[in-house]
Design a binder for these strands. Sequence first.
DNA 1: TCATAAGCGAGACGGTACGTCGTGTCTTACG
DNA 2: CGTAAGACACGACGTACCGTCTCGCTTATGA
Lengths: 197, 197, 197, 197
Amino acid sequence: MGSAATTALKLDPERERAIIHATLELLAETGYDALRLDAVAARAKASKATLYRHWTGKADLVVAAVKSYEHTDHLIGETDTGTLRGDLLAILRAIRDTMTGPTGQILTGVMIAMQRDSELAGAVRTSILKDRQHIIQRMLDRAIARGELPADTGTEIFEEIAPAVLFTRIFILGRPTNETDLTRLADNILIPLMTRH
Amino acid sequence: MGSAATTALKLDPERERAIIHATLELLAETGYDALRLDAVAARAKASKATLYRHWTGKADLVVAAVKSYEHTDHLIGETDTGTLRGDLLAILRAIRDTMTGPTGQILTGVMIAMQRDSELAGAVRTSILKDRQHIIQRMLDRAIARGELPADTGTEIFEEIAPAVLFTRIFILGRPTNETDLTRLADNILIPLMTRH
Amino acid sequence: MGSAATTALKLDPERERAIIHATLELLAETGYDALRLDAVAARAKASKATLYRHWTGKADLVVAAVKSYEHTDHLIGETDTGTLRGDLLAILRAIRDTMTGPTGQILTGVMIAMQRDSELAGAVRTSILKDRQHIIQRMLDRAIARGELPADTGTEIFEEIAPAVLFTRIFILGRPTNETDLTRLADNILIPLMTRH
Amino acid sequence: MGSAATTALKLDPERERAIIHATLELLAETGYDALRLDAVAARAKASKATLYRHWTGKADLVVAAVKSYEHTDHLIGETDTGTLRGDLLAILRAIRDTMTGPTGQILTGVMIAMQRDSELAGAVRTSILKDRQHIIQRMLDRAIARGELPADTGTEIFEEIAPAVLFTRIFILGRPTNETDLTRLADNILIPLMTRH
DNA sequence: TCATAAGCGAGACGGTACGTCGTGTCTTACG
DNA sequence: CGTAAGACACGACGTACCGTCTCGCTTATGA
């Protein structure tokens, strides 16, 4: 889809870093609409020509920037609270915090680009779960070991519901999402579904 | 956000209809980004001046258009299949079809405007459930009467999960959503949650 | 040749004046090469779009500006010195002064455009003689009346030689042209040719 | 003006030849404005760096190219027609042909550079008369020997007028210049001036 | 009955960002 | 060391769209 990966031209890695970095900063500061490629070039001390030599335009650049951001995102620490409920709430909190923090500021402005690039959509989705899949799996393993869950419990239920509900709440409906909301999600939806036979 | 409702000027209702109609058509054809106000004016055989006299700009016009669209949307017929599962699948199908049909085409292009207008976000959300809340309530009542559900079952579970999961799948992840997906949603998530004690 | 005259669009005459005026100022200040259309637009408090709506580009604009300048150029005063030689020198001085003054500054930078527009070339030539043709004719008439010239003396000799020699000296060879040079031109070339039988 | 002559760096003469040659070709093909240094480098199979190491930019390169061209120009053969008028017309024809031939194509595009480099201007002027000065002198000598001209006739009259008139006609006014025009120039201007007492 | 005003279509305008192109600098690898 | 190759910063170009504005034209009222 015209991203940097498909481009034959060489790009000084240092230049790429600077441009991607400037893009992410400005995305967070101003959102997608108000993102100006002139401003990106200026902040990266790069030329617009360089920018266009390697990405086809704003959408493509933003896609690349967000993808890159996901890949370098910091893992959230793994918490072992001793109960399934406690672990679940910790992860839900982490997801919510990611969505409402800087990552979320970027994603808020990036949703249009997602319409045009399903690969980006996947990257965004990953960004919400990414590397947490292992954390979730370990969380489930611990719960199984404690006898809280059946031995064959998989991550599908969590993955299908939790990100969708939080994503929709935060990005589509724009609703603040507090501790009570997370508790209801865990107690009324996730735990019942995981523990039924 | 300066929508038509706040404007004192009179607008020939026929002109308004034409403009809103052209906006919706072009939204569906080209998406929000590529929507040109010149094109709206041309298609509505209206002047840009008229357009700006009554809406503050693209976002405002699109918000008004989508809201108006929701209000004139055709209700989906109510289906009584005789079982909770059958009714659920019928409603899920209707939601999916709305999201992947013309309404969805419009929403796809409208997501940016939603970031700027929580009222629109609400309207969009309503458009997904709108007037179906009553249908859902009646569906639940029939299931309760048949003894399929506890007497106090409310619409919250459905409303919290079904639109979020479908919305995320279709608009964010861009995944095709077929009968099997709907069945899994009903059988593995919605029905278990509704029928547990 | 794509000049304003061939354009169908309406242009506010006040805007046109401002743009042409700014163009002439900047031409004289910076020359053709360094003339920036952004600068023209800025100085004329006009939009670049307006500029391009009415002229195809720099060359076309400059052509129009110079032509317009010629048409509004101030006539040089007519001098009657009482002798053919005195009148000739007065006119040669006037031509030289025009070429080395602001008009010349403009022409210096405009020579490229002349390669592309023979109509402009004509305008430039006219600018060197323009309205002086009558002055020259009257000068010859006075000389004829005084018996200094044959009755059928025409302006051709003067027009063919004087502008060419001065133009070449000043613009092509870049040589300063002082009183002695003008005297030589009059005494050794123009007067002998006019007075021979 | 920073031409090659002032540069200390060594330049492979073969490289210089190739670059100058490419410059002249492209000058004749496209004119000064459309001359691209990238194109020069490409055609000369040289690097732009090499180019800038030895000339300061486009103007400087063009100046050098044109000067070099003049120095290697082929002399026109000397014609002895037996009469002053015949010889004059032969030379006028040669000058006209030079101006309208390949040299002229180059000069047409080079006039801007001339504004910036009086040395080039001199070279151009020379290119119009160059090495013809001797031819002209010999032509005059023959005419003197035949008794057609006074013994002290010099080349100044010819040099002052003929190139200026032809140059102006061809390059500034862009007028075709045919045999009749040359005849008029010789019969009405040059010969009368040379033969008067 | 007519004028006087309000809403309108048309479209030029100033402004801003876009994406492209050419110059002149610089770095890398080769001979 | 001088070169070919070519990426780069800079900055002007010419285009597209937005939101403002000024025109006449039409229509709908009130003197």
